[in-house]
């Protein structure tokens, strides 16, 4: 229980930190960039929207503290302002439209890459120094260094432009309307496959290498040796004794890994014009649509923080050791 409370407190503090960074950044920059942006939109917005924008980005004479409280209050009520590119559509609506695509793509791809990476890592650690260990760990090192967006570009070039196996852009064919029918789902999966494979290939290496190292560490433990001496079968020793204990420490790296994967996935979306958060984020940056950009950053950060919290809860249940001290 104390563990849950501790992690919940950390979640709240980190959510608050992300929100505060979002508030401070535009105000921290030399010559508040929002002034320029608001100047550009002055003719197109009504007075109330303009006033709200000025407050949101600190182009006002209100004390900083008041601005901050108003900002937090708006945030708690889910008010992220209006998008300037799609004026007057609320930022929250654009987020609601693009979030499912990112969650689906990144969620499935990450799950796949974690599973494949961990299983391959277990195998090559068991056969350490063997042929596959050499091949797979070298390959994983290489794929881990691949820039996501470059791999995406190559995939798009080969399978899209050159061989016409897969579509070049978008999440589904523009001739279809989204519905819960088999043809639409098939079309959706067909569009998602290349970006998903890109994410899986680029992120798998990290899991594989991390698992391999932890597994080798665990294989050196006394209880594994003892299990061997008792004459346990190889598979029991590998899975129940070594792998189960080795998975947990490799999950502690999850926090950073997931942030990294999400960053890469955002780039992948840009390459494949996939209508998720990353694609919208870039569009917002290019159009200097700061309210939309802020909202997207917040929702990306929040999703990562909450995912992280869920994973921590899961392995807190699985591994009593992590419940003690987190900072160790």
């Amino acid at each position: 229980m104390q563990f849950v409370r501790q992690r919940l407190a950390f979640l709240l503090v980190s959510l608050w930190a992300a929100a505060t960074i979002n508030f401070i950044l535009p105000r921290l920059m030399p010559g508040n960039p929002a002034v320029l942006m608001i100047g550009r939109f002055k003719g197109q917005l009504n007075a109330r929207a303009l006033k709200a924008l000025e407050l949101q980005f600190g182009v006002t004479h209100k004390p900083l503290w008041d601005q901050y409280l108003i900002y937090l209050n708006n945030l708690i009520h889910g008010q992220l302002g209006l998008s300037l590119t799609y004026y007057p559509v609320p930022v929250s609506q654009i987020i609601a439209e693009s979030l499912p695509w990112t969650l689906g793509l990144v969620g499935v791809a990450t799950l796949m890459s974690v599973c494949i990476g961990l299983m391959a890592g277990i195998y090559i650690a068991w056969h350490r120094g063997g042929k596959w260990d050499g091949i797979l760990s070298t390959m994983a090192t290489f794929t881990a260094a691949l820039p996501y967006f470059w791999l995406g570009l190559l995939m798009l070039f080969l399978f899209g432009y050159l061989w016409h196996w897969f579509p070049l852009a978008h999440a589904y064919s523009t001739s279809l309307t989204p519905a819960f029918t088999w043809p639409f789902i098939r079309n959706m999966l067909y569009h998602a496959l290349l970006p998903a494979v890109t994410i899986v290939i680029s992120s798998m290496g990290g899991w594989l290498l991390g698992m391999r190292n932890n597994m080798i560490q665990t294989l050196g433990e006394d209880y594994v040796l003892f299990g061997r001496a008792r004459g346990l079968s190889q598979s029991r020793l590998m899975i129940h004794y070594a792998a189960r204990n080795a998975i947990l420490p490799s999950m502690t790296g999850f926090a950073m890994a997931i942030g990294f994967v999400v960053g890469g996935a955002l780039l992948t979306e840009v390459v494949f014009s996939y209508p998720g958060l990353g694609y919208q984020l870039l569009a917002a940056v290019q159009n200097e649509d700061y309210p939309l950009m802020q909202g997207l950053f917040l929702i990306i950060a929040f999703s990562v923080l909450i995912t992280n919290f869920i994973v921590e809860m899961l392995y807190g249940r699985l591994d009593p050791r992590t419940r003690g001290g987190v900072s160790k």
């Binding site: 950044l25 942030g259 940056v285």
Partner: peptide, 25 residues
């Protein structure tokens, strides 16, 4: 500092970089 480090660790880096560079111009 440990708490601060852990927070910096979990806030996704690339989106943060994108937002900062967007403001810097």
């Amino acid at each position: 500092m440990a708490t601060f480090t852990n927070i910096m660790l979990v806030i996704p880096g690339l989106p943060l970089l994108i937002v900062i560079t967007a403001y810097v111009h």
